[in-house]
């Protein structure tokens, strides 16, 4: 059985279609005047930024952090390199010499590279890191004039990351 859908009955004004068009024109003109009065919602990007309105869970560029004593937290376990979906991370590990006061850590990154052209800001590296050494900070305007420039090396990553205080088991002498 076919179901007959009742069409709504239109009055003459609705059939003429013009009152509705005029209503629409009136509405858009109201918005036009409002924008002329400077009440548009646009944010003038390079001058006005939303940096201070970013939520705490915002995922910007991945960075490496140091602790409050200026030690690098990364132990070169290469878990982030392993989990990174676009394979943006490349780590070159290095053994810590025995005369180093932190020789018990054994391993540290010689070079740590994140290719920001590949990075998809998924945050899996941050999640997987057992040492809480890699964090996604709030930098979102990562640009460069060449591919080489877009490859963040260790120095750049620490510069972006800065210091992240907090207790990590690895550094606990009593453990």
């Amino acid at each position: 059985m076919a179901i007959v859908v009742q069409r709504p009955k239109l009055s003459l004004a609705e059939k003429l279609y013009l009152p509705a068009v005029l209503g629409g024109l009136f509405l858009t003109f109201k918005h036009f005047l409002r924008s002329l009065g400077g009440k548009s919602v646009t944010m003038q990007y390079p001058e006005q930024r939303w940096d201070d309105k970013l939520p705490p869970w915002y995922r910007g560029a991945p960075t490496l952090v140091k602790d409050e004593w200026g030690r690098e937290r990364c132990v070169s376990c290469q878990l982030c390199e392993f989990i990174c979906p676009p394979r943006a991370i490349t780590i070159t590990p290095e053994e810590i010499p025995t005369n180093d006061p932190w020789a018990k850590v054994e391993k540290r990154p010689k070079e740590f590279e994140i290719d920001m052209i590949r990075c998809i800001y998924c945050g899996l590296c941050e999640e997987v890191c057992p040492e809480q050494a890699i964090y996604l900070r709030k930098d979102y305007a990562i640009t460069g004039y060449s591919r080489a420039e877009m490859k963040h090396n260790k120095e750049k990553l620490y510069e972006l990351g800065g210091v992240m205080p907090g207790v990590v088991n690895k550094w606990n002498e009593n453990k």
């Binding site: 918005h31 036009f32 924008s35 009440k39 548009s40 919602v41 646009t42």
Partner: peptide, 10 residues
């Protein structure tokens, strides 16, 4: 410009 103004843009 007019389309922007009508859509509350700049």
């Amino acid at each position: 410009k007019v389309s922007a103004f009508i859509q509350d843009r700049i």
